[in-house]
């Protein structure tokens, strides 16, 4: 099932956005206490908008069901305004920086250069799969909040994401008051 520009616009509307800054994520003092190989020197990781989009698309390719197509355009269109959202955009950049940091340390390559199985493995190694989302939480909780659940929310609050599950007007999408009256297709 193909994600369309309408889906991206709908996902943005569900999150209150109608619509890039260059940036770096600095890993200080080796950071994550779950990473025994952490170094002690500051390292700067590219989290410019273009880089964030590539990582997010690569993540979505793992997070979204295989029957979904049009992922790159959908994620890119969704992410642009989301990155400009006060506070939230910085959270996404930081989450991407965390993922990139682990990808380079643990797997020796940028996240989007890993094959999908390795990306899936990396997110699970980080504990993102079992983490509860928390905007001020641990690295895994922030990645879950700003990256993983942002992408899942965008998909499943869109008309196409809803239809995958069986609801044309998913919660968060202003899809009107007709579909609730209709029987199954």
């Amino acid at each position: 099932m193909e994600l369309s520009r309408r889906d991206a616009v709908a996902a943005l509307a569900a999150l209150g956005l109608g619509g890039g800054a260059a940036a770096t994520y600095t890993r200080r003092d080796g950071g994550d206490d779950s990473d025994p190989q952490s170094g002690t020197e500051d390292e700067e990781i590219d989290v410019s908008d273009g880089r964030v989009e590539r990582v997010a698309v690569a993540a979505a390719e793992v997070l979204y069901p295989s029957q979904v197509t049009g992922v790159e355009q959908f994620v890119t269109e969704f992410l642009g305004p989301r990155l400009n959202q006060d506070g939230h955009g910085d959270g996404i950049r930081e989450a991407v920086g965390i993922v990139e940091d682990r990808a380079q340390r643990w797997h020796g390559a940028e996240f989007d250069a890993l094959d999908p199985d390795r990306r899936d493995q990396l997110l699970r190694e980080m504990g993102v799969d079992t983490a509860d989302e928390a905007p001020d939480g641990t690295d895994a909780e922030r990645v879950r909040y700003y990256l993983v659940n942002d992408l899942l929310l965008a998909l499943y609050a869109s008309p196409t994401g809803g239809e995958l599950v069986g609801v044309e007007n998913p919660q968060g999408h202003p899809g009107g008051t007709d579909s609730y009256q209709r029987g199954p297709p």
Partner: peptide, 9 residues
């Protein structure tokens, strides 16, 4: 969709 330890298919 925002809970659980699964994603993808």
């Amino acid at each position: 969709a925002l809970t659980g330890d699964d994603w993808g298919d």
